[in-house]
């Protein structure tokens, strides 16, 4: 865990180019160029600004901003987090500053960095989804939109829209119509019986990309107080504990849709990222690892490049989906 402070010292390591000046990590999806396929995941990287002290944001492929809603949201009561075996259960409840404050206060600073800004957004109703999507679609400095229909932690926090393929179809089709300028990613819930049905629906309704997986619904119980640890009772499980589930779903996605796949779930190392790409991910997001090491995403990017060099892969596409048989 080398946080921050000397990330800029080793330029050879940090510009992702090989001896011939070719950046083997570069990947283009939806017409957007990512200098590395490593993005920080929504909800684990704040508004990005919290990490400036610890890393050079310019070295990231992109930042997926914490889920933004039309109005500010206070979130759930405490306790909101509890550690479980190789994982973290959270029930933050999509606390955020609201789209207006985000655009006025956070985005101007974020825009000064050379990295892709992906804004994760959600609503309590279809109407709210449409309003916030329209605003973000017209906002300079936002490179992509990531529609969250899968937060498990608040009532009407989007998960109802991923509880049936019909509900998913309805919301994606409506949001698609108002997002005219920017690529639209739909982030899927793993808390379903057959992820393939949802993947197909999202592609049919015109999403440009799909990201998976959001957290798995879980619980921890306090055996002395005889009640769930989290005030919200249930929370979303993230971290290495969910990686096998996430990999399986990305693997299924590769054979199900043609649109680019953004994979995530428990990535802690470059080898973890490689597993997701071998399973079919175009790019990946790093989540809980940002908590255990603020510069994790950059380390993972460097490790992924080392892995690629060790296998003589010249591009992400050289090994993307290679494990899918």
């Amino acid at each position: 865990m080398n946080n921050n402070q000397n990330n800029n010292n080793d330029h050879n390591k940090n510009n992702n180019s090989d001896n011939h000046g070719i950046n083997i990590l570069e990947k283009i999806i939806c017409g957007i160029k990512f200098k590395t396929p490593i993005i920080t995941a929504s909800g684990t990287f704040g508004y990005g600004l919290e990490f400036i002290r610890f890393m050079d944001l310019n070295l990231l492929g992109g930042i997926s901003i914490k889920g933004i809603s039309l109005e500010p949201v206070e979130g759930n009561p405490m306790p909101r987090i509890v550690e479980t075996a190789s994982g973290l259960l959270n029930a933050i409840g999509l606390q955020n500053v609201g789209v207006k404050s985000f655009i006025a206060e956070k985005l101007p600073i974020l825009k000064s960095f050379d990295t892709n800004i992906i804004v994760n957004f959600w609503g309590k109703s279809i109407d709210e989804y449409l309003k916030v999507a329209e605003i973000l679609d017209d906002t300079d400095g936002v490179d992509m939109l990531e529609m969250n229909i899968s937060c498990p932690n608040i009532k009407d926090g989007g998960i109802s829209f991923s509880s049936t393929p019909i509900a998913t179809s309805e919301i994606v089709s409506k949001v698609r119509k108002v997002v005219r300028n920017k690529p639209l990613i739909v982030k899927l819930s793993p808390n379903v019986t057959d992820i393939k049905e949802y993947l197909k629906v999202v592609e049919v309704e015109g999403a440009d990309s799909v990201s998976l997986i959001n957290t798995l619904i879980g619980m921890a119980i306090d055996i002395h107080k005889f009640k769930p640890v989290l005030a919200n009772k249930t929370g979303g499980l993230s971290g290495p504990a969910i990686k096998p589930v996430a990999l399986r779903m990305v693997y299924e996605a590769f054979s199900t849709v043609k649109i680019p796949i953004i994979g995530m779930g428990g990535i802690m190392t470059g080898n973890d990222a490689a597993e997701f790409i071998l399973a079919g991910a175009d790019i990946v997001q790093v989540g809980t690892a940002n908590f255990t090491d603020p510069s994790a995403a950059i380390n993972i990017s460097n490790e992924l490049r080392d892995y690629m060099n060790s296998k003589s892969f010249k591009s992400i596409d050289d090994f993307r989906g290679k494990a899918v048989i």
């Binding site: 959270n90 940002n290 908590f291």
Partner: peptide, 15 residues
């Protein structure tokens, strides 16, 4: 004192 997920203001777990 509060249980912290990250210590740097990102997780919003220690309010």
């Amino acid at each position: 004192e509060a249980k912290m997920g990250c210590g740097i203001g990102a997780c919003l777990g220690c309010l």
